[in-house]
């Protein structure tokens, strides 16, 4: 229904347990330019709360969260 978000980097975080999905996103956020987008695919439901909370507290933005079967897909935009 919405147009596809174009990601600058894709992270496969499937199978990683909390808090590692968040840690990986944090590690990689500086590898995309400001305004760039990371698409992260996780399976741990803890990341549903962790990644948006992390984004909020570090001043970045989660554009969209999708749930496709068991996969949780996050689009995270680097704001600074």
């Amino acid at each position: 229904m919405t147009e596809e978000i174009k990601a600058d980097m894709e992270l496969d975080l499937k199978g990683l347990l909390c808090p590692l999905p968040m840690v990986r996103v944090s590690q990689n956020i500086t590898k995309v330019p400001v305004g760039g987008i990371i698409k992260a695919v996780a399976t741990d439901p803890g990341s549903l709360a962790d990644i948006p909370s992390w984004a909020k507290s570090t001043g970045n933005e989660v554009l969209k969260t999708e749930k496709v079967e068991k996969d949780l897909i996050f689009y995270i935009k680097r704001l600074k």
């Binding site: 439901p45 948006p52 909020k56 969260t65």
Partner: peptide
């Protein structure tokens, strides 16, 4: 520090994740 801040943020914004959880 980021993990701690995220945990605090989570406590203050339950609506961010409650429904999907």
């Amino acid at each position: 520090r980021e993990l701690s801040d995220a945990a605090i943020m989570k406590g203050e914004n339950i609506e961010l994740f409650k429904d999907i959880f």
